[in-house]
Amino acid sequence: MKLHISFKISAVVLVLFAITVGMLVDVPRLDILNESIRNLFYHVTSWFAMVFLFIASFVYSIRYLNSGNEQHDLLAKIFVQVGMVFGAAGLVTGMLWAKYTWGAYWVPDPKLNGAAIALLAYLAYMILRNSLTDSLTRAKISAVYNIFAFVMMVIFVFILPRMTDSLHPGNGGNPAFSGYDLDNTMRFVFYPATIGWILLGLWISELRFRVDSLSQKMNDDLDIKSDRLDSIPRLDEE
């Protein structure tokens, strides 16, 4: 996996744009929401980036089961790790927003519980990975669990909250943010921000992928040349 330089530049530009313009742009003045409506640019975009990365991980798990290529397994793992960082960011920004609009950091709401449980399922995925030592068995079993967890996450986060009452915007009869955005100024920031965070996530994943595959290679070489310790390849030689 190698990202073209233009993707990296646009990631930086778009994220900077989202942070600065997201704070400066005129937003609709609404009761209760007030300035907290700007959270759309940070909270919703990090969830979108998380969902994108989890979908990528799901796809790579399926590809691994078809191909048996260890790189696909590594990518599936990395996308989950980076996706969880975005998930945590989404959770924290959402909690801050909830404190100022709903009055509490956490409310027993189906959408919130779904999000927390989805993150728990992916933590379980990491625990499962760490409890298996043989790399082939680990790759296969964790790919199966990842597919199972992803399907359940989709049901839990996107289908069940729509069936019951939910405080969360966009669920249970509440309008989503698009309902408040009458003159499309928010879309003008929201879409670039989403793309920017997704690209940034991909970039982080790429870096992690390169580091992890290098350290894997180093371990493999160590096994072969364990009797000649002075010939360990160093990272900067790559």
């Binding site: 379980a124 499962l128 079993i141 669990y145 199972f148 967890a149 359940m152």
Partner: peptide
């Protein structure tokens, strides 16, 4: 999930960790 947990060797604990989030829906 019990097949998955039995491959990993740690049965009941791992089954609970893997199972609870997936069972919740």
């Amino acid at each position: 999930l019990s097949t998955i947990a039995s491959k990993a060797g740690r049965n009941l604990t791992l089954l609970a960790v893997l199972g609870l989030p997936i069972l919740l829906p």
